[in-house]
Design a protein around this nucleic acid. Structure first.
Length: 876
RNA sequence: GGGCGCUUAGCUCAGUUGGUUCAGAGCACUUGGUUUACACCCAAGGGGUCGGGGGUUCGAAUCCCUCAGCGCCCACCA
């Protein structure tokens, strides 16, 4: 055994991780055991480890390690996500630094750079997970752009197309001008932003008074194709059917009527820009308006913007406001805060834009997923409060825009065979596409060179929604051994921020493609925030460096720190001091082991009564805690399971058991106690292993020579044995008495070293764990006068027993008298309140017997306490 | 604008069906303790009219109403 008095985490972590890897403990193959599988939420391939990963990876590792010990065939599948928009943005940025413009590259060249990037950074985050101890089956590592994964995605797209669920449509979508792609509704974040409401006067045909509209986006007047009023608005009846002139653009557009307009808002007059607003588009369709798109892909104005052409929309907004003001038609500019859609990834302000996109019909697909979570509860959300959010989203689900104008991702397998965008086929391979195209076009001479594949790629989430199935190849080979064995998986651990993006869609795809749930439990973690409650972010610089934390405190300590503060679904305010607490705990366990192993063992010595009783008690206490820990695990209260283990080890094992059996200084320990306490310590290590894998394996391996099969990681999670609850209670009575003695010492200012005599009325048999009380209370002996006529010392009560300790003038009598008088006053007051309650007719006649009995007991206790104090006073 | 949730000790949080073990835990704090595993420690202790107000009940942290503050989700008011 190492003699270091402190646990040095860094020296053992790599050693045991290598050992676990070398002996393939993480690897899983289908066998006769029941499976327990988890698929990791694949981090972005270019991502780096942050606190959110640390939290959810720790949780998964705890679950999977415990399952492994419970005899399940535990399989944790790791992997990364290609994260099309995020990764593409990073690659574009890097190329830019090198002076390369993406637009100058061919698709193939760009993808070459993207793959280079992936090779370079792709494995990093997984390596970082290993530092934390993650026991993933690394041989199964998947990447959402692996050939087999992509093939599954393409197959699913074709399948859904053939079912009539995937369609192509000219719709208004969310356009990210920075990434120059569309986004799904879920990728748009609405933020309150200050802006202005501009009141602009439009000249009306044949009228002297202008018509005033209110808008937040004056730059879009170039796209105006009508002014809209409410048909019943009294103020504008005389204007019906007339035309107005758009300022600056100097075009004449009609005044139309539509009851979409809110008479109360603004001026009650709305300018209609069908190309750039979803509502305006709807109005435009109802009234057959022209559609004028004024923007380029990067949200600069096009030729419709006249002298503002090629200037950015926000620059133009300011400039045109100035011009309108100069023209005298900007009547008012009032402050106005409104919600603006921004891109989740690039933060750019979203531009509603009309374009051809691919969509997936969701309503029908969502049905089984709604039932699974809300009715049958085949899939449980933990905590359950997220069911409401889930319900709301699912019941109002809208079609999913799955195409992206990017290159990094699965290219949409639609092939056009003419210049008419309606002339396309969808197929898994170009060969099949050609055949289909020849049939559909009626032209058997069509060549593969006549086919042009759609340029767009699929939304990243369109590959990750298959993750629990595709990692086991269950799309392409739906009846293979692996998918049949590992699917459905058990637990999914992830953040609520991707409940819709990912979790809901996985449930949908599970039922659609496997006719079965993808997992049974969804554990939704909270967001990791800093101590002040702020979200951790790069900008704020308040996110601790995850790897540095592990270096400073040790992986086990960081895991414990995270678990100490992480009730499911609640955000957790992370503070490094929690890791310090974890480190202290590691050190405590380490030193408990040093104590045990440091003892000299004497086989000739027999076991003392104290040791025997204490060991027997701890064995019971262990079972009771184990039962509680299991219950916490069953309810996914991992934090509570952790805390229960923490208290069992620190308080019960270290503070009580070890202190009880500890031989006097310099004395050896008897062989029996030594062996028994080691067995108990081994059991402790098992309970702690899921939380603190490195430290526990280190100690486990140090205790004995262990074969490969005997490693802690593959040991057996203890089964709950029946235990004697009365014994546990009795022990607690004993600790109560000891606490009473210690408190008494403190109150009377007696030293802890001072050996005292204790007297008890009645028999010593009434004292629970008498020899323990004697040892831990620093007592000379327990004496028991049958009847004390005259009390000779101070007194206290514990567990219904009355104790006296002769003080022989060791204390300040006057000080003591005052103190006791205070206590007496308080006790009398308490007694009165209880008696008042008992005198209440209605209480006595209505309260159940148990409650009444309790009140009577309180009364009796109070009376006794008063008696004790009075006796003590008399004895002074 | 609609919906959901939260508010308990200095901090972070538990509190299942109203009543025994209901006012708790961990940390922090205070006091005392250094030859005796661990000061990353030991022992003892002090902290809360359970966000405010009202109601139901013999009895409310728990149920109802209301007000205030905070958070989240959804939604096309220019």
């Amino acid at each position: 055994m190492s003699i270091s008095s402190k646990f040095e985490a860094s020296t053992v972590e790599q050693k045991w991780y290598d050992y676990w890897l070398a002996n393939k403990y993480f690897a899983s193959k289908p066998d006769d055991r029941p499976a327990y599988s988890i698929v990791i939420p694949p981090p972005n391939v270019t991502g780096i480890l942050h606190m959110g990963h640390m939290l959810n990876v720790s949780l998964q590792d705890i679950l999977i390690r415990r399952a492994r010990m419970q005899g399940f065939n535990a399989c944790w599948v790791p992997g990364t996500d290609h994260a099309s928009i995020a990764t593409e943005a990073k690659v574009v940025a890097r190329l830019k630094e090198q002076g390369i413009d993406k637009n100058d590259l061919t698709r193939e060249e760009f993808l070459g750079h993207a793959w280079d990037w992936t090779e370079e950074y792709g494995g990093l985050i997984l390596k970082q997970l290993q530092k934390l101890g993650a026991s993933c089956d690394w041989d199964r590592t998947k990447f959402t752009l692996d050939d087999d994964m992509s093939a599954s995605v393409i197959q699913v797209f074709v399948d859904l197309f053939n079912k009539g669920l995937v369609y192509r449509g000219y719709r208004m979508v969310n356009w990210d001008p920075e990434a120059q792609t569309t986004l799904s509704d879920e990728e748009v974040i609405y933020e309150e932003k200050p802006g202005f409401l501009y009141h602009i006067a439009y000249e009306v045909e044949g009228e002297t008074k202008p018509l005033v509209i209110a808008t937040t986006r004056p730059e879009t007047i170039f796209g105006d194709t009508a002014i809209c009023i409410h048909p019943e608005d009294e103020r504008f009846q005389h204007l019906k059917g007339k035309k107005v002139k758009v300022p600056v653009a100097n075009r004449w557009i009609p005044i139309i009527e539509d009851d979409y307009v809110d008479i109360e808002f603004g001026t009650g007059c709305l300018k209609v820009t069908p190309a750039h607003d979803i509502n305006d588009k709807a109005i435009g369709e109802r009234h057959n308006l022209d559609v004028i798109d004024i923007f380029n892909a990067d949200a600069t104005l096009n030729a419709h913007g006249l002298h503002y052409e090629s200037q950015d929309r926000f620059v133009v907004r300011k400039a045109i406001a100035k011009e309108l003001e100069d023209l005298g038609v900007l009547l008012k500019k009032e402050d106005y805060t409104h919600k603006v859609g921004t891109s989740e990834r690039t933060k750019a302000v979203i531009e509603p834009r009309l374009s051809d996109q691919w969509f997936l019909k969701m309503e029908q697909l969502a049905e089984p997923a709604i039932k699974a979570v809300l009715e049958s509860e085949e899939v449980a959300l933990v905590p359950a409060k997220f069911k409401n959010t889930y319900r709301h989203w699912m019941e109002n689900i809208r079609d999913w825009n799955i195409s992206r104008q990017l290159w990094w991702g699965q290219q949409i397998p639609a092939y056009y065979y003419s210049n008419n965008p309606e002339d396309f086929v969808v197929a898994t391979t170009p060969e099949q596409a050609l055949e289909l195209a020849q049939t559909k076009s009626g032209n058997p001479d069509l060549m593969s060179s006549d086919l042009r594949q759609d340029n767009d790629v699929l939304d990243t989430w369109f590959s990750s929604w298959l993750w629990p199935i595709s990692v086991f190849d269950g799309i392409r080979n739906p009846d293979n051994e692996e998918i049949n064995y590992y699917y459905p998986t058990r637990d999914l651990v992830t953040g609520p921020d991707i409940l819709f993006f990912w979790v809901a869609r996985m449930i949908i795809s599970g039922y659609e493609f496997r006719n079965e749930k993808p997992f049974s439990k969804v554990y939704l973690t909270g967001l990791v925030r800093d101590k002040q409650g702020r979200k951790m972010s790069k900008q704020l610089g308040n996110s601790p460096d995850a790897l540095k934390l592990i270096e400073d405190f040790g992986a086990d300590a960081v895991r414990v720190g995270l678990m100490l503060s992480s009730a499911a679904g609640n955000d957790l305010l992370f503070d490094e001091s929690l890791c310090q607490q974890g480190k202290n705990f590691s050190n405590k366990i380490w030193n408990a082991y040093r104590l045990i192993e440091g003892w000299e063992v004497d086989e000739n010595r027999s076991q003392s009564v104290v040791s025997k009783e204490a060991i027997h008690w701890y064995a019971q206490k262990f079972q009771q805690s184990l039962e509680l820990i299991n219950d916490h695990f069953d309810k996914y209260r991992i934090s509570d399971a952790m805390m229960t283990s923490y208290k069992l080890i620190w308080d019960d094992f270290c503070s009580w058991l070890l202190e009880a059996i500890k031989p006097a200084y310099g004395d050896p320990i008897d062989g029996q106690t030594y062996r028994e306490v080691r067995v108990l310590f081994e059991e402790n290590l098992k309970l702690l292993h899921p939380f603190m894998p490195f430290l526990t394996e280190e100690l486990w391996q140090d205790m004995d020579t262990r074969s490969v099969e005997e490693a802690l990681i593959v040991s057996t999670w203890p089964e709950v044995q029946s235990y004697d609850e009365k014994l546990i209670n009795r022990f607690e009575e004993a600790t109560g008495v000891i606490g009473g003695i210690r408190n008494f010492r403190k109150e009377k200012e007696l030293g802890f070293k001072e050996v005292l005599a204790l007297q008890v009325i009645g028999s010593t048999e009434a004292i629970p764990f008498e020899s323990l009380v004697q040892k831990m209370g620093q007592l000379s002996s327990v004496s028991y006068p049958e009847a004390i006529s005259e009390q000779t010392g101070g007194a206290f009560r514990a567990n219904g027993l009355e104790f006296f300790i002769p003080l022989e003038g060791k204390i300040d009598v006057e000080k003591e008298r005052l103190k006791l008088q205070e206590e007496l006053k308080y006790a009398n007051g308490f007694l009165m309140s209880v008696q008042k309650k008992l005198a209440n007719e209605r209480f006595v006649s209505n309260a159940p017997e148990q409650v009444l009995a309790n009140e009577r007991k309180k009364e009796a206790d109070a009376l006794e306490k008063i008696e004790v104090i009075e006796k003590s006073l008399a004895a002074l």
